[in-house]
Amino acid sequence: MYPILIPITLFVCIAYSIKTVVDAYTRRRIIESRGSEELVRSLLDGEANRRRLASLHWGCVLVALAVGFGLVEWIGTERVTPGVVAVLLGATGLGNLAFYLLERKQK
């Protein structure tokens, strides 16, 4: 199983690196094209807001998953069963819903 994870991880890292470089290049081109100061400021403010929301999103999902894993451990399940998968998927869904509610409350 582990030998297959290495190429998958490598592919994900390469794809993420390419995305990051393309995004940085695009931002640089917009700034260099002498775009209006308002456009540059809104671009940078929008990016900061997206980062903040991404942190909130992942925080909600990971906390909900931690609760789900804790529940699975508390029940004492030693095998992966459909019930265990359902608990973890439900925890992930609840984390996403919590993010949605928190994000709407911020606006």
Results as ranks from 00 to 15, higher is better:
Val67Arg: 03
Val85Phe: 09
Asp45His: 05
Val80Arg: 04
Met1Leu: 02
Gly90Leu: 09
Arg41Leu: 12
Gly59Trp: 00
Lys107Phe: 05
Leu101Pro: 06
Leu62Lys: 08
Glu32Lys: 14
Gly90Val: 02
Gly35Ser: 15
Glu73Lys: 14
Val22Lys: 15
Ser42Phe: 14
Gly93Asn: 09
Thr77Gly: 13
Ala64Asn: 02
Val67Gln: 00
Val22Cys: 10
Trp58Leu: 07
Thr9Lys: 03
Trp74Gln: 07
Leu94Ala: 12
Val12Glu: 11
Leu53Pro: 09
Leu71Glu: 08
His57Lys: 12
Lys107Tyr: 11
Arg34Gly: 10
Leu94Gly: 06
Leu65Pro: 00
Pro82Arg: 05
Gly59Gln: 00
Glu73Pro: 09
Ala64Trp: 06
Pro3Ser: 03
Tyr25Cys: 05
Ser55Leu: 15
Phe69Pro: 07
Tyr2Phe: 05
Ile75Cys: 01
Thr77Asn: 15
Pro82His: 03
Leu44Arg: 12
Gly93His: 10
Val87Cys: 13
Val40Ser: 12
Val22Trp: 10
Ile18Arg: 04
Thr26Gln: 15
Ile14Gln: 01
Ile4Gln: 12
Pro3His: 04
Asp23Asn: 07
Ala66Tyr: 02
Thr77Ala: 15
Val84Cys: 03
Val22Tyr: 10
Gly35Ile: 15
Gly68Ile: 05
Ala54Ile: 10
Arg79Ala: 13
Asn96Gln: 12
Asp23Met: 07
Tyr100Trp: 10
